[in-house]
Every structure is written in structure tokens, then in C-alpha cells.
Design a protein around this nucleic acid. Structure first.
Lengths: 317, 317
DNA sequence: AGGAAACATAGCCTCAGCCGATGAGATGGG
DNA sequence: CCCATCTCATCGGCTGAGGCTATGTTTCCT
């Protein structure tokens, strides 16, 4: 009795109002004529009031029918508008992707990925938040971002060190080598372009070490322990520019992920990839990523692949 | 794919957005929880884009979900509005309006209003009950009528004398002047068509007075007291025809509301509007009036306006 | 750890909504 | 004046949408 209106019925009534005929409305809607008649009959009984009356060969709307048809036009226009907005979102013509990431990625992979994303989908808004992995995960859980770009240091077997990942959908973006960084004046023979072969870690057991961020430091300690010594940590800093400057000045040696070298390379240092030392970079989302997030992640992996290819090529030269 | 939206699904999504939970939405809608889940799943596949994602124990809307829920609220509001309009029309076609009113209105405003109402809405049943204001209010409270037409005598400032009105929805219908009624043989010079200028009440301190109904009598006593005298009441009667006949016969003077003169005018009397003496006529309903009641009240106010215009015009002649 | 809470999935049943076929009423031309 | 024709209403049948209960899975709290 409270007129449980239905969009299909409203579409039918609106079509009848436009065309002035049941048959024409059926043609327009792709229905058979009896279906339209049936809809109208149901609509009338539900409304509790006649909506149209036969007029000669055709039909004519009553006052109530005209009223409802007018309202139906407004409503259907809004419904179609909402459908179009939704479609725009699905087709990446609108929407946003918010990303939390650590500094060295923000300086390298992300600008390149965002550039191609914005070029292909100008309607997409990209939000960036600088955050170390734990904070990035928090931001993701809190709904502050749609994607968290995090990393973990792994051994050669690529075993996971973070257990919490099962809660998220994980996409591998980039596996990058970790480099040993030494002052250029200590460069071994055969060094080219600042890159040399890595000496055995044990040969540096007596050196002063410069530690990076918390997670890089833990990785460094583990590797040195495996090589049979405990490194003497002379300095600690998160800043990858500072690390290289300190190394160049002779304050010690260090290990850094390759991305930091891509972001900035101090001419006073030489680097060497440490065999088996890998930093794995991953994109996390809660459940399946939204289309904009999926697109952003795809760009990140593409750029990561390009970086890996470039590095492999450079190693051949 | 073009997001064939459906009102039921939109209602479900809106409920989920409001309550923040599938289970709560199901409760609100009177559905079982799996039905809501199913609707949401269908809506997502039809929309071609995720609308919500699990967040711990509950669910959280995605950007697209939030967008669609917002649009859904707008759309549903319009749909419900259209349904209400339709319902109002339906009630005007088959509904009824029962009115309690006092005699002079039953003889004047009401026949005119009901005539136009029946002309426009032949299906509307109108019920009439003669009742003085207190009894009319009782009938309204008892549900015997839908509208109570009542009056109160007010001073120039139009202050309310009935306190109980706050319990009702009040519509002002008509403010009419109260007239002094004298025998034609006592007509002052300048009298035309039975209407003259009002003498100061004090000049009639020694006259015999004829009192009308209880409320008119109270108003009369108050006005005379203000003029500095207590009227000598020679006769009392509710019947406005009798009042005029008594005045015409020289039994005394009286005051009557203008409506009674419109209902019946004895050729043996002359009348004069008393400055500042107003009888206010109001329509009362319990809560918002039903569409038929609203329509009836609108007709009453229209007729009241017409009467006021006619009286103003007559005063100019 | 274990239980409760919340959402998803599965299976079932009913009726809404579609169709084609056919009946009834109005129009217009021969 | 009657018949051909157009339009809408009605009928019977089928399929799937949409409701339910029962049960599984995940998460959170104690």
C-alpha cells in the first residue's frame, strides 16, 4: 500500500509517458507488449490509484500518472547519473589511490610509476605518505591509505621474515640487491664506475660500521654473525645520503639497498652487491585492491622490472 | 555492466552504510543476514567494482561504495517522496474528512468549502458534526472527527485565550469582526444597508442586553467591563436568528460575530463592527492532517479569505 | 585456547517477470 | 456498413531473482 515503487516499473511508466503508447514503450524498452501492460497494471494496484486510462486506440495518463511519470524521470536521471559515476570509477577515469611508502622508494620507483599512471589516467588522484614499513602497515589497517609499500630483508632462499603478511593481499614489486659501501680510496683493483666485486664480509670484521635504519641494521648484524663476527657500529643514521657521505669521509663501511644508490650516489664511495643479500619490496592491500590501487601496483612492478633489467645489463658491461 | 541498479539493492547498501554492518542492516530491513550479503555481492558484480571490503569483524565501504551509498540516499529520498505524493492523491480519491464545527460556520463557510471540495474530488466523503468548540475538541481527541473547527474571541493584539492549542496542529482559517446589533428604529444617521458606525459601548450602559452562547457572553462581559459598566442581561439564547429577532423587537441590543449575519440578517436590525473585537476561527488537527483533511482545511481558508475580501469591499461602498 | 560475533556460502522454495498466443475494443477505409 | 487493422488486456507457462535456514570461515575478546 505504501507504493513500493520499483525502478523497472518507473522506467516503463516513463517510457509510456514519453511515447504515449504501450506498444511503442515496449519497443523502446525491448519488452513484449504484454509485459508492459502487466507492469502498468501492477503499478496501478500498488499505487492504489489509476495511472492511465484507455483513450480510443491508445492510452492517456491520469493526473496521478503524470505526476508519477514526472517523478520517475527525475529519479531515473539520478540513477543513471550514479551508474555513470560508478562506471567512471571502474574505468579509472575517476578515483584515487593512496600509497604509504618508505623514503628510498619515494625517491625512485614511485615518481616513475606515478608519472606513467597520471599520463594514462589523468582523472586518477594519487596520494603519497612517507612511512617506514611498520607505520605503513598501520596506515593501511587504519584506512588512511589503500596500498602500503613495504620491504623485508631476506636470505637467498627468500623466506619471509614478516609473519603478519597473511592478513594482507601481497604483490611482489621488486627484489633488489643490498650493496656493501666502502670509501673510494679503498677500492680494490678492477673497480669500474664505482662498482666492484664484494670482498668476503669476514675481511671487514675489524672495520668501523655505519648502520642504517632499524631493519637494515638487523640484517647487517645477522649477516656479520653468519660471517663469524660482530660489527663495531660507529654511527647510526636513517639518511642514505648521510651514510654515503660518512663512508666517503672514511668513517667506516656500510650496507645499503640498491634503491638508495639509484636515488643518490656519492662519488667518494664504491659499492659491491653482497651475494645473497636481497631486500624484497612488496605492495600490501586489504583484500583485493581497488582498481586504482591495482593499477598503481601494476605500475610499480613494471618500474621495478625495468630497474632490475637495467641493473642486470650494467653488470654485464 | 552498465550497472543496472535496483532500488532494493540500493536500500540494502544505504542501510549498510548507515549502520556500518551487514547484520545490523539486515535487522533494520527485516531481512535475514545472508540475504543482505547476497544483495551486496550481486550489487558488486553488477557494478563491476568492489563496494566494500571486510575489515576485521565488520565491513568497510570502499570509495566506490561510499559514492554509491551517497547517491542511493538521494535517490531513495526522492522515491519515498514520490510514493508519499501518490499516497496523498490516492487518499483524496477514496478517503474521507470528518469535521466538527459550530453552527454559524456550518451555515456559511462550510457549505461553500465542501461544495468546491466535492466538485474537485468526487470520491472524497465529508462528514459533518455540529459541535461548540469544547465539544469539537473532545470529538477530535476521541477520534470521532479529523478536523475541529473552533473559534476564540481575541482582543486587538490577537492573543490566544485557549491554552490547550499546543496539543494540536493549528491552521488559522478566518478572522472575523464582531458586530454590535441594534434595532433598526434606533439606527443613527448615516446608516446604509443596515450597517452603521459603532457608538461607544459606554453609551449603551443603560440598555438591555441579549447574550449569545457562553463564549460570546464572556467576551461581551469583558468588553463592557473595559468600557466601565456591567451590562444588564435581559435574555440569553444560543440561536443567532432568535437574537436578531429579539433585538428587532426592541427587547435589547447584542453583539454577534459577522458569520451569523452572513447566515441570516433580520431586516429589523442595524449592525456596526466593534473596533478591536475579533473572533478568530481555527482548524485543529492531531498532528499533521491527512491529505483529505489538509484539502478540506485549505478550502475553508480559501472561502474565509473570500468572505474577508467581500466584507472589505462592502465597507468601501 | 576457546567461544562468540560477523560475514560468506550452499541449498531450497516461492513468486515476480518475461514470453507467446489470444481476446476485446476502437478506428478508418472501402 | 462492415471488415481489416491497430492497440491494449488477459491467459498459461517457464526461468531466474530473491527470500529463507543451515553451515562454514574468519576475527576478536576473554
Amino acid at each position: 500500500m505504501p507504493a513500493d515503487l520499483d525502478l523497472t516499473r518507473l522506467r516503463v511508466l516513463a517510457a509510456v509517458a514519453r511515447t504515449g503508447s504501450v506498444t511503442a514503450a515496449a519497443r523502446e524498452l525491448g519488452y513484449a507488449q504484454p509485459s508492459v501492460s502487466h507492469h502498468l497494471a501492477r503499478l496501478e494496484t500498488e499505487a492504489g490509484i489509476p495511472l492511465l486510462q484507455r483513450a480510443g486506440r491508445g492510452v492517456r495518463l491520469t493526473e496521478a500518472g503524470r505526476l508519477l511519470a514526472d517523478r520517475a524521470e527525475e529519479i531515473l536521471a539520478r540513477v543513471d547519473g550514479a551508474a555513470r559515476e560508478l562506471e567512471a570509477l571502474a574505468e579509472l577515469r575517476a578515483g584515487r589511490a593512496r600509497l604509504a611508502a618508505f623514503p628510498s622508494a619515494l625517491a625512485t620507483i614511485i615518481p616513475a610509476a606515478v608519472a606513467t599512471l597520471r599520463a594514462d589516467h589523468p582523472g586518477l588522484a594519487v596520494g603519497l605518505l612517507e612511512a617506514e614499513p611498520p607505520e605503513a602497515v598501520d596506515a593501511l589497517r587504519a584506512g588512511k591509505v589503500d596500498v602500503a609499500l613495504v620491504f623485508e630483508h631476506t636470505d637467498v632462499a627468500h623466506t619471509r621474515t614478516i609473519e603478519d603478511l597473511s592478513r594482507f593481499e601481497v604483490t611482489d614489486v621488486f627484489d633488489e640487491p643490498v650493496h656493501l659501501v666502502q670509501a673510494a680510496r679503498d677500492a680494490p683493483p678492477g673497480t669500474r664506475g664505482g662498482v666492484c666485486d664484494a670482498p668476503a664480509l669476514a675481511t671487514l670484521a675489524d672495520a668501523d660500521w655505519i648502520a642504517g635504519c632499524e631493519r637494515c641494521r638487523a640484517d647487517l648484524l645477522a649477516r656479520c654473525a653468519q660471517a663469524g663476527f660482530a660489527p663495531r657500529i660507529a654511527f647510526e643514521t636513517d639518511d642514505y645520503v648521510a651514510i654515503q657521505a660518512l663512508v666517503a669521509s672514511g668513517a667506516g663501511v656500510s650496507t645499503v639497498p640498491a634503491l638508495t644508490l639509484r636515488a643518490h650516489r656519492d662519488p667518494g664511495v664504491v659499492t659491491a652487491p653482497l651475494p645473497g643479500a636481497i631486500r624484497r619490496i612488496m605492495a600490501l592491500t586489504i583484500g583485493a585492491p581497488t582498481p586504482p590501487a591495482r593499477e598503481l601496483i601494476d605500475r610499480l612492478t613494471a618500474v621495478g622490472r625495468r630497474f632490475a633489467d637495467e641493473d642486470a645489463l650494467a653488470a654485464l658491461v
